[in-house]
């Protein structure tokens, strides 16, 4: 596998933290998409670390407008291309879980319902990392964040993670998939497939965050893989309503996933058991809940 840095459309010199999962995802996505792409970025870490004037890490056209409107801005671009007879350029949103699961969800739901011609990549790092690790709808049950603190009465997030992928699926869009920063061949294949489909496509990508999950930076890829191996993050795609599970969990104990992450260090034996039981119940009986 020969590979030249100069071919990258997302260049070195961006200012993401060392070990950033989002940077891995974005570079992989750009390698799969190619030059004929327009990027719409929601306000996020990725926007700050890639588009600080007067520099840009992007070699494709790029726009950032606000936190919550990337799906609608992308719609406008897709409509402009349609009006001008351009049927080849791919319009792609790159947004975090804050923009996708929470503040931009209403707009995205409208864009999905209308099946606009947009490919939406959510990198889910499970909290508002750009503002300093506040909980989002994507934050997992019991995880510490700066707004789901570990107190004497309550410890960590009290609610289960929102299942965005399934909510998107209920919009009957032509393509939905999940992937992670630790499965780049899978991610590449899914982006290449999605690129060829017309209409709204969502790829929800788990993106470990060194600063927010509090683990050593070399473990980003390993943690993303553990999320799948434990069964916490479901690797699947839904094409025109047909579901395919791309990778079966190995049922690695969830504790192995939690252990390196200080956001989970307050978890009791009972907490871990509780989560493990839910994961087992999901995969074995089709009941209960998982994270992804």
């Amino acid at each position: 596998m020969e590979f030249k840095r100069e071919d990258d459309l997302f260049v070195s010199g961006h200012t993401a933290c060392a070990g950033c999962g989002a940077a891995i995802i974005i570079r992989t996505v750009m390698r799969a998409l190619g030059k004929d792409t327009i990027i719409v970025n929601a306000t996020s870490c990725s926007e700050i670390f890639s588009s600080c004037y007067p520099t840009s890490a992007w070699k494709v056209p790029y726009i950032h407008v606000t936190f919550e409107n990337a799906a609608a801005v992308a719609t406008g671009i897709a409509k402009a291309l349609e009006a001008k007879g351009n049927d080849h350029t791919t319009v792609v949103v790159i947004a975090g879980d804050g923009a996708t699961y929470d503040i931009g969800f209403g707009i995205m739901s409208g864009v999905m319902e209308r099946n606009e011609n947009v490919l939406y990549i959510c990198y889910d790092n499970e909290a508002y990392m750009n503002t300093g690790i506040q909980r989002s709808g994507a934050t997992p049950y019991k995880a510490w964040t700066t707004t789901s603190q570990v107190g004497t009465v309550r410890q960590g997030k009290q609610e289960w993670k929102k299942n965005l992928t399934e909510i998107a699926r209920a919009h009957n869009i032509p393509y939905i998939a999940t992937s992670t920063a630790g499965h780049l061949i899978d991610l590449t294949k899914k982006v290449e497939k999605a690129k060829k489909i017309k209409g709204f496509r969502l790829i929800n990508v788990l993106s470990p965050c060194v600063a927010g999950w509090k683990y050593p930076p070399n473990l980003t890829v390993k943690l993303a893989q553990l999320a799948v191996d434990t069964g916490l993050w479901k690797m699947y795609e839904v094409e025109n309503g047909k579901e395919t599970i791309n990778m079966q969990p190995k049922f690695t104990p969830v504790e192995e996933y939690f252990k390196p992450q200080k956001r989970f260090k307050h978890l009791t034996k009972e907490d871990i058991e509780d989560i493990q039981n839910k994961v087992n119940d999901y995969w074995k009986n089709g009941k209960g809940e998982i994270y992804g």
Binding site: S12, G13, H14, S51, T55, S56
Partner: peptide
């Protein structure tokens, strides 16, 4: 606006 790929001047 910013010119494409200019972030490469940041020697991180």
């Amino acid at each position: 606006h910013a010119k494409p790929g200019t972030a490469s001047k940041n020697k991180t």
